[in-house]
Every structure is written in C-alpha cells, then in structure tokens.
C-alpha cells in the first residue's frame, strides 16, 4: 500500500552569501526527497553538508532559493502558518525556554504557543513528564537542570503539540548512553502511535541504523543516496568492506586514498597500542595487493587483515569519502 507523503522536496536549492569575492555558498543543491507517514527518516552527512539548512527550510525558518518543499502537501513558503500547527523542532545542544521558570512552567508556556486549552495542556504535560521521567524535576527551575534533563525537557517541548512531523536535529548530542537510549526508545514508541513522521539528523551511525526506516546521505548540499539502511549497505558497499590493522600509522594517507578502486577509507588510531585500524571500501578485491604494497611503502606493517560486515558507517565512508568528523 502506498503511504502518504509527509515531507517532499523538489529540486530544492539554497544559496547563502559567501565571503565577498568568493561567490555564493551552495548549501542545498537540487535536493529531491520523499519521506512518508509513519517513517523515521535519517539524514546523515558531515558538518556543513546542508542537513540543518534543509531542516530550517522544512520548519519554515528559512526560504528556499529555488525549488519547492512540502509538508503534508503544503508548500512551506505559501502555507507556513498551517504547517506550523503540525510540526515541531528539537535541536540537540540547545535548551530553549526560560531558566528562571520551572520545568512545568516552561512546558505550559510552550503548550500555549500551540493554543492548547488549559486542561488539555495539563493532561498532555503530565503524560510527557511521565514518559520522559521528569516527575522529580517538575518544579525545578530549568537553569538548575543537568544537560541530560534539559534535553529531556527540550524533547518534551517538541512533543507538546503532538506534531504530525517532528524534526530532530542531532537530538542525542551531549547525552549519556542511557539517556540517549531512552530518547531513542521514546521516539520509536511515539511513531508507532500512527500518522507521525520523524526527520532525524545525527552524527551517530549506530543511532541512524537502529532508529531509521530509511536514511539519506547528504554531502555538499546533494543527496548522494537514499534507502533503507540494509539496502544501502548491500547496494553501496557491494560487500567489499575490509578492516586492516597496521603499525605504525600511515605517513601519507593520501597515497593510499588515491589508489584507483579505493572508494572510501577511514582510520582509527589506538594511542595506547600504537595500532591503526583502516576501514576500506573497495571496488573489487583485486586491488588489495596494490594496497598492501602502498602500506609497506609507507613504512607500516600489517598486523591483521580481514573482510568485515558492512555497516552504515561503511556506506557513509564510501559515499562521503571519510569517516564522520
């Protein structure tokens, strides 16, 4: 059954004024995207790829330079006020609200920006407070909350109007493992209530893998790939993902990267052991001999070599070219 579209962009383009004499900066370039109802859609990309710009346009905070963006079939430029009734935005690392007000007061305030009647707002806040385990901090001033609890409050605020489309911009930024897991579970439970859509940006590959029904990888304003995590892993990496442990680390990383057939390469250094792990996505296995020669030319010794199961990070590496910044 074909599901309704919640978010749609058509040839979306956004330019920003650059440094004088250097021309405009292309933040989004011909972005075509379709996100359906009941879907958690992840947007992955390095810093400056255009993720937040896209979210800002969809949230009616920014106008597109060209193209069209639609939320539930409504144009974000022409129908902004209607769209605002059914969306909300949660940005990680940000804590909107008033420090001098308590958790309860802040939530009540934000509920009023969506016109919720008093008793209705009270009930919803009470439910959100339970879900986000904020009961003990209900009367605590926001300024006294820890980072984790501020982020919970921020998330509760995002749910306060029970939006049809929720934008989560790096929502787990700065959260500890348990809080992040709690947040992920909550979002997944919420989407199961039906008729909801989440657009999530994150730097955590595992988070995207675990949460998202589909993922789009964006770099320099262009969507490079868009599919389910599983299909992306098979389609993009073609299965040829390798893990090589070497010591010492490569003196000239670029010489390895430039070998024809190396699609993506990321390195992780273990300072304690002096071992560097290379994760490589290769076009075909036959270039492995060239690769090993180049590693030796660099003065490094191969300690371990093996094929690995492709992960979303491998997909990302093969498309963007480097590991997450």
């Amino acid at each position: 059954m074909k599901r309704d579209l919640s978010i749609e962009t058509k040839s979306l383009r956004r330019l920003f004024k650059g440094i004088p004499g250097k021309g405009d900066v292309v933040a989004l370039d011909q972005v075509d995207l379709e996100v359906h109802d009941d879907e958690i859609f992840g947007l992955l990309g390095p810093n400056g790829a255009g993720k937040t710009t896209l979210i800002k346009i969809l949230c009616t905070l920014l106008l597109p330079t060209e193209g069209q963006a639609l939320i539930k079939g409504m144009d974000v430029v022409k129908r902004a006020s209607q769209i605002r009734r059914i969306i909300n935005l949660v940005s990680g690392g940000e804590t909107p609200g008033y420090g001098i007000l308590s958790v309860k007061e802040n939530l009540w305030f934000f509920s009023q920006l969506y016109g919720l009647p008093r008793d209705f707002a009270k009930d919803r806040i009470s439910k959100l407070v339970d879900q986000l385990e904020l009961q003990d901090y209900l009367n605590t001033r926001m300024s006294k909350l820890s980072t984790g609890y501020k982020q919970r409050l921020n998330l509760a605020r995002g749910f306060v109007n029970d939006p049809a489309v929720l934008f989560l911009d790096e929502p787990t930024l700065g959260l500890d493992v348990l809080s992040a897991r709690h947040l992920r579970t909550l979002v997944k439970d919420w989407i199961r209530t039906g008729g909801k859509t989440v657009l999530l940006t994150t730097h955590y590959m595992a988070e995207a893998d675990q949460m998202c029904d589909r993922v789009g990888i964006i770099n320099r304003g262009k969507v490079l790939a868009c599919d389910t995590p599983q299909r992306l892993k098979t389609k993009v990496t073609g299965g040829a993902t390798w893990k090589i442990e070497i010591t010492p680390s490569l003196s000239e990383l670029e010489s390895v990267k430039s070998i024809p057939g190396v699609i993506g390469l990321s390195t992780t250094d273990n300072i304690e052991t002096g071992v560097t792990t290379l994760k490589l996505v290769l076009e075909e296995e036959s270039i492995m001999s060239d690769l090993l020669s180049k590693i030796r030319e660099n003065g490094s010794k191969v300690l371990n070599l093996g094929k690995s199961e492709p992960t979303l990070e491998d997909v990302y590496i093969s498309l963007v070219g480097t590991g997450m910044e």
């Binding site: 949230c59 009616t60 905070l61 006020s81 609200g97 008033y98 920006l113």
Partner: peptide, 13 residues
C-alpha cells in the same frame, strides 16, 4: 541568544 526565537518562529502564532 537563548534559542527561544526559533521556537516562536516554528509555532503557529
């Protein structure tokens, strides 16, 4: 500066 303006702007008021 406190991040509230964004919230006002995405709200239907």
């Amino acid at each position: 500066e406190s991040g509230n303006l964004e919230m006002y702007l995405v709200a239907p008021v």
